[in-house]
Structures are given as structure tokens and as C-alpha cells.
Design a protein around this nucleic acid. Structure first.
Lengths: 197, 197, 197, 197
DNA sequence: AATGAATGAGGCTTCATTCAT
DNA sequence: GATGAATGAAGCCTCATTCAT
């Protein structure tokens, strides 16, 4: 048992961050498979290869774990868009297209997890949506200011909400992902009144 | 105990429909307040002023009660649109506007219940969405065929899904309902490529 | 509605005895089919074509109904043996044979009901067994006194108990009933030390 | 709280086997006292000095607990007879005598539990009886083959069933156990037609 | 830090019994 | 006498959380 031994098997002692990630990962997997409600602490512990009690060393409660899961999903969804949104090299419409594409693809790849985590909790924590709302808001406002978009009389907030919820829809269908992305980019452009190229 | 007393207090014997409605109503209220998952039979019974066992005289199981709740919400949402969608006196764009207005207003009024009932169950029963999808599909296809709409390259299915999910978004904000409705009608028109008047 | 109308259909008003028999009959049928524990008042009422509450006009409680069921089964089992046991025209061994045959055949025909009613309750009410015990006791004692049987050192009580429980065994096998009866008569004869013919 | 304190009080943590035995023991006691049907998980928990939920750490369900109870009773009844039945040093009649004595004595000592556990369930699980049947079958067949027994025309199966059920009878009476055992040995010998010594 | 036996509140459901009609 | 809606105690089981080891 050399101190430099590296991680094969279930090494019993792990740095807290690693353990935390293990647990979160197990929870994500189970939420994807069984749904969030059906994901019990016991199952998470078993899947993570950890004792039930140990989970409480890393998360204050089940709710805390769920929140962390949400935060993780959300972080992954926002990381790239955050960069794109402020990339001055791109036209606003290009940024919008890129964000749409990223979200669509993410949701396509993590469909079940995404819905397990968000649709199932919905009401409780509005917070995570804030950043996405803000980001879309910036894109729309920026595009309008630059003369690329034209919302007419339509309130920006309404447009943002509309897009935010609308994008989730088409992911339900198992169509060709690239086609769907193209379609969605068109719909987003239409919604914000993007000038034809 | 005057023989003419009418309806105050919990008269013990009620016609089945009345009791059923009482229970459903209590369940709706609790789902709105606490969320669907947190709505237990015990709480429904207490709220309805009925014994726990009595609920099972009207619903086979908790799931059955939830289904009935869904069905009720859904029936109320679809009743009017069903009529509008086939009203040949109206332009397709008028029908679209009317359906949007109806849904928006309904959701505005029953916001929390709507989301408690649908978003919380999401995955399980896709069925209720079928009719809404079909109805929107007819509107879009009809409008296109009549030359009122133009979806361009965008797949009809994608448009429908986009609208179906998108409309739920703006209801979150407590803006002036009529303004929001007007905005949403514009967004729906844009999405289907409705010809400017 | 002439007062002489006779019983086709579910005549609503029935003399108490008739109703009582209807209910008992329904209970017997259900006990046979589903077992005694699974036979609820609700099912009995439904099967008997009577309201749940009406059962309580004829039986004080579920236990009372079960007791009545037992009594009914038991009465049918004892009726004939009661006569046989005192028939001075028969040898004691002939009476023993006849009683065995009767019981075997009864149990063969009503197997499920018999076991549902007796084995399932066993402990509670020893009472019904009394008469059967007494009857067998008379037969054995009579046969011994007449010099037909010889129990040797074996206590009469023990013999009686042995026979009383033993006869139930072979009914479980779906062998040819007449063969089994013949076998059982031999075993009973051997047990009481009947002299060879 | 002396560190050497041993076993008084309900030490909270117990090795699984100990807890399991505690629970089984409580269940046995209650089944004896109140009957098997009336033995609820809640009562078992209370009697065992354990939380309701804890029972499910050791038994998958109430049925599982009942099965374990049956298995325990049955194992105790069969252990010795299994050895006796194949002891070539004994005559067949001696083996038969020994098995009878063992069963009688066991039943005498655990009368109520035995009946609570077996008669109450009867129909459902025929399985436990198989081994007893087989064992008696071997004894009878062995004795016949060795010329010690003579069943005449009587089918072996019938004899076995007769004995299997018959032995339970005499235990009901609180006679002198040794006398009853002697009587029963005589009755078993007579049933299988054992040659007089 | 890690464990997992133990807890107990709370969930769903059944059913014998009552009683206003 | 007959009904059946209503009751509520009681049953089985789950699971987030705690805590002695």
C-alpha cells in the first residue's frame, strides 16, 4: 500500500471533492435512469459505492444533493454560452445560433437527466433559470441595439421566456439532431425578428 | 338543525359527483400550494373534510386521483380550442390567435396548478399532450395549405413542439395579461411565418 | 305485484331465513374460491346481491358469520353419522365404516370449503369438534364393549383424536375416491383393533 | 454505564443474526399467543423492542417473516427424524417409534406455535410437508420391504397421509405426555401393520 | 472520515362497521 | 327492512436521517 498508489479499485479514502463528484455522478445516473423522485439516498449510496451515512458528510440533506445536481447540469449548459454571448467577433445572430445549437445538442445528449432534474422540480427553485434568462436577454437586447433584430412591439422579457421554454420542446422527438438544430435556429431568428441575411 | 338549512357545514351524505368534485378540488388546491408530490391522500382528505377511506370510494388509487386532476386541467384547456380550430368562419391566423389567447389566459389563471400537474409528472403520461399537438398541427398545416402561413424549410413537427412548450414560458411573469397575450400572438405568428396583414 | 308472486329475479324483500341462507351461501362460495381470510363482507354482499349493511341485519359481526359458516359445514358433516351411530341393526364395525365413508366423501366433495373454514380458524373455536369427538368415542367404546374392537392399552381418547385428525389427510390426494375410502376404512379398523371378519 | 455491562437492557447495535433471532422469537411468541393472522409487524416490533422499520432490515416482507417462522419450526421438527430414519442399527419399527416420539414431544412443547404456523397457513405452502411425507414414506416402504410391516391392500400414500395428519390430533389433550406417546406408537404400529414383537 | 444498523414519521390502502336516508 | 356512503383504525411498507462504533 504505497502512498502513491493511484485509484484502481474502490480506494477507501478519497479527497472530499472526489467523493462529492462520485456521489453526484451516481445521483445523475440514477435520476436519468429512474427519475428524480425514485432516486433514493440508499440507491445513490450503493451506486456510488459509499455508505449511506457518508453522503451526509458531503451534502446536508437530500434536497441539498438535488440542488447540487441541478447546479451541475446548469453549469454545463451555461459554460459555453457564457463565452459565446460576449464574443465581439460574432454577429448577434451568430451568437444566437451558436447558443441555440449548444443547448439543443446538450439537451439531445442529456435529455433524460435534464428533464428528470428540471421538469420534476420546476416550482421550487427558480434561481437556476436566472442566468439563462439574463443571457438570452443580453443577446436579444444586443441584437436589437445593433439593428440586427427587431422585436417590434413585443416585450423583450416575453420573447426571452418564450424562447427559453420553447427550445426544450423539439428535443422530445428523435429526429435528426442537425436538422432540428437548423429548424430551431430559424425559429429563434424569426422570434427575434432577425433580418434576413 | 333547521330543516331548511342549505349547504353550510359538512353535510354527511353527498351525491357522488359532489363528493368527487370536493375531493378533486381539495387535491387541486393542495397541488397548487404544495406541489403534486407533496399532496398526500391524508392531506387531501383533511382539506376536503372527508375521511381518508372515503377518497377510495371515488378514486381507485392515488394515481387515479392524479390522473383525474390532469384530465380535468386538460379538458378545460382543450374544450374551447377544439371548437375554434375547426371554425371555418375564421382565418387560420385568427384561429391561431384565439387558441393562443385561450391558453395564455387559462394558464395565467391556473398557473400553479397547471405546472404542478403537468411539469411534475412530465415523463410518465405523454398522452394528454397528444391532442394539443394534433390541434396545433392542424392549425399550422391548415394555414400553410391556405397560403396564410409559411414555414419555409422548417419541419411542421418542430414548429409545433416549439410553440407547445414556448407558450408556457411567459406565464411565469406577472405582467399585464393582455399585453402578454398580444406579444405571444405576435411570436406565434412569426414562428409560423404568418403573412403580415 | 300479487302477493303470491314467486321468486324469479332478485325479489327485494325476502323472509329473513331466505336472506340468511343467501348470505351464508355466498360466503361459502367465496371461502371456497378465495379462502376465508380473503372473504370480505363487501364481497359477500355483492355475491349475495345484498347491501353491505343488510348483512348486519342477519349476523352480528363478521365473526358471527364465520361461525355460522362453520356450523353449517359441521351440521352437514354430522347429520348422517348421527343416525348411523345409533343404528342397532348394524355391527359397530359397519357403523365405523359408514361414518368413515360419509366423512371421506363429504370432504372429497367439499374439500376447499372444508379446509377454508376449519384449518384456517383452527385455534379459535374448539366447540364444533365436540360432537364429532363424542360420536367417535361412542363408536369406539361401543365396539369395545361388544367385543368387536380391541384397543389394548391405548386410551380411547387418544384413539379418537388420532382418527379425527387422520381422516383429513388422504383427502388431499386426488386418488380414486372409492379406493381411498376402502383404505381409510382399513386404517380405522386397524386403529381400533377391529377383529378380522 | 459500566464498560463491562453485559446484555441487560436493549443494546442498540446488535449483530444481524442476534436481531434476526430476536425478531423471529417475538413473532413466534405472538403467533403462539394471538394467532398468526393477528400478528402484525407493529406488534412484532414492539415485542422485539425494535422499530418497525428495523424488521425490514432482516425480512423482505411480512410474508418473508412468516416463511422464516415456518422454516424454523419445520427445521426443528425434522432435524432428528432425518437422522433416525437412516439409522441402520435400528429396526424399522424402532425408527417409526422414535420419529413418533420426537414429533409428539415437539408438538407437545410447542403446540400453539406449531398450529398457529401451520394450520393457519395450510393451503398456501404445501412445500414444507414434502420432506415429512417423504420421510414417512421411506419408513413405511422400508419396513414393508424388510417384512416388518404389512399394509395389505392399503396404498402406502394413504397410510402416510393418514399418519401425517393423525399424529397432530392427540396433542390437543393435556394428558400425560409419555402415555400419549406410548399410545401413538401403538397406533402407528397398527396402521402400518407392524408384526407383534 | 467512514460505516450501516437503527429509527420513526409518514405514505398508501383495506375493510368491518355504522347510520342517515 | 334495506341501502350504501361514510368512517377511521389498523395494516404493510419506504426512506431520509442519525449516531455508536
Amino acid at each position: 500500500m504505497p502512498s502513491t498508489a493511484e485509484g484502481s479499485g474502490n480506494t477507501r479514502y478519497q479527497p472530499p471533492e472526489v467523493r462529492r463528484r462520485q456521489i453526484l455522478s451516481a445521483a445523475a445516473q440514477l435520476a436519468t435512469t429512474d427519475g428524480l423522485e425514485a432516486t433514493s439516498i440508499a440507491k445513490v449510496a450503493e451506486t456510488a459505492g459509499v455508505a449511506k451515512g457518508s453522503i451526509y458528510l458531503h451534502f446536508a440533506s437530500r434536497d441539498d444533493l438535488v440542488d447540487a445536481l441541478q447546479a451541475q447540469v446548469w453549469a454545463q449548459m451555461m459554460e459555453t454560452p457564457r463565452v459565446i454571448a460576449v464574443d465581439a467577433n460574432l454577429l448577434w445572430v451568430e451568437r444566437l445560433d451558436a447558443v441555440v445549437a449548444h443547448w439543443m445538442r446538450y439537451e439531445f445528449d442529456h435529455h433524460d437527466l435534464y428533464h428528470a432534474v428540471f421538469h420534476a422540480v420546476a416550482t421550487d427553485s427558480e434561481e437556476p433559470w436566472h442566468e439563462a434568462r439574463a443571457l438570452l436577454g443580453q443577446l436579444v437586447a444586443g441584437g436589437v441595439a445593433a439593428g440586427e433584430f427587431d422585436c417590434g412591439q413585443i416585450g423583450t422579457e416575453t420573447v426571452v421566456e418564450f424562447l427559453l421554454h420553447g427550445y426544450a420542446g423539439p428535443c422530445y422527438h428523435h429526429a435528426e439532431i442537425d436538422t432540428v438544430i437548423g429548424d430551431m435556429q430559424q425559429l429563434f431568428r424569426r422570434s427575434v425578428g432577425a433580418r434576413p441575411a
